[in-house]
């Protein structure tokens, strides 16, 4: 399996992935919500051609027509963070260009004509930004962007205007969550214009202690300023999380080891696993691996499992739609296989 999640990244004991996306629009067409079918098709063709007619980029990208995809395949792409939920539900002429290493995805006719997204494992926001700028430059050769001297890149939603940039990092914060200190972090972030979300949506408890941190302000700051803001805040959160993990361990090593290893036992032996339960267990196992309590399992392996056990991806690799019960059984089977449990 290719993709960013099978690579190791810096600070991967806390930071799962770093992502940057640029929102861009064509000057000559209305935004997707006000487009005619023909205009939608023109945008789709223009972007596809801009990439696939470029000899060096063409080798590296695959074009996917969203309209031609089954709901399961769409959902799997959402779970891989390669397309947004909005694009998956789109009724318009929409598509996506994905690079072979799955680090770049260019969504076409989402809320904006273009959403360029780059994702890296671990703390690599600068790398993600650099790559986004490169892709943006490539597209700019053939596309006239909607741009205003004062307001910058014009977007459908005023919350994206200016740089059109959203920088986000996905963090695994079990110790902050266990001790309740996560509340302070959330409060502090909201005061300085930083958004915090769960893995998928708002229910953070259910999503395995995963939190997504991103900028809200897009106008008035440069791309580098936005990225360095997120980096600064992230490095502070990393420090808190690590020191809390140490404290928890020192306070009562048996208790933490017991918690982690019980979860490991359940995770690798269960025959039925709901996605909620497995994300919770996976979080404990991840903590155990990061703290050296569980040995011989890599963080990349856990990233891979996190993807494989999502409902859409699970059905994609099985090759057929599954009922919730069938999924729970299949999920448990995959976990046992991946973690090499022979029972």
């Amino acid at each position: 399996m290719p993709g960013w999640y099978v690579e190791d990244g810096p600070e991967s004991d806390v930071v799962v992935s770093s992502r940057v996306r640029f929102a861009r629009n064509f000057e000559e067409y209305p935004f997707p919500s006000k487009m005619t079918r023909e205009q939608g098709q023109s945008v789709l063709n223009a972007v596809r051609d801009a990439v696939l007619n470029n000899s060096s980029a063409a080798k590296n990208f695959v074009f996917i027509d969203i309209q031609q995809m089954s709901p399961i395949d769409r959902q799997a792409l959402v779970e891989m963070h390669l397309i947004s939920p909005d694009l998956a539900e789109s009724q318009k002429q929409s598509g996506v260009l994905i690079s072979k290493d799955e680090k770049i995805s260019i969504m076409i006719n989402e809320e904006d004509h273009l959403r360029i997204q780059c994702i890296y494992p671990g703390m690599q926001l600068d790398q993600a930004l650099d790559l986004c700028i490169k892709v943006d430059g490539l597209l700019e050769e053939n596309i006239r962007y909607a741009f205003d001297d004062k307001y910058g890149y014009l977007t459908c939603c005023p919350t994206n205007i200016g740089t059109g940039m959203r920088a986000s990092v996905m963090l695994h914060l079990p110790a902050l969550t266990m001790t309740g200190y996560i509340r302070n972090i959330l409060d502090a972030c909201s005061k300085i214009g930083i958004a915090v979300r769960g893995l998928y949506g708002e229910n953070s408890e259910a999503s395995g202690n995963m939190f997504q941190i991103s900028n809200q302000v897009t106008l008035g700051q440069s791309e580098e300023e936005i990225a360095s803001n997120i980096k600064n805040i992230t490095s502070q959160i990393i420090e808190h999380e690590r020191s809390l993990r140490d404290q928890l361990y020192k306070q009562n090593p048996y208790r933490l080891e017991d918690k982690v290893l019980r979860s490991f036992g359940l995770f690798t032996n269960a025959r039925i696993l709901s996605s909620e339960e497995s994300l919770k267990l996976l979080s404990d196992v991840r903590l155990g691996v990061n703290m050296g309590i569980i040995k011989g399992i890599s963080t990349e392996k856990l990233n891979e499992i996190m993807l494989l056990i999502q409902p859409g991806y699970l059905q994609k690799i099985t090759g057929k739609p599954l009922s919730p019960e069938e999924r729970d059984i299949k999920r448990a089977e995959i976990v046992r296989n991946k973690l090499g449990c022979s029972i």
Partner: peptide, 30 residues
């Protein structure tokens, strides 16, 4: 949400005050 890039000119000052409230600035710097 807006319908097209022209909307930003059409809604001029009204939009500008909204942008200031959202971003604390109405001047692109990137």
């Amino acid at each position: 949400k807006l319908g097209c890039s022209q909307c930003y000119r059409t809604f001029g000052e009204r939009l500008k005050s909204i942008l200031k409230r959202l971003h604390g600035s109405a001047q692109h710097n990137g």
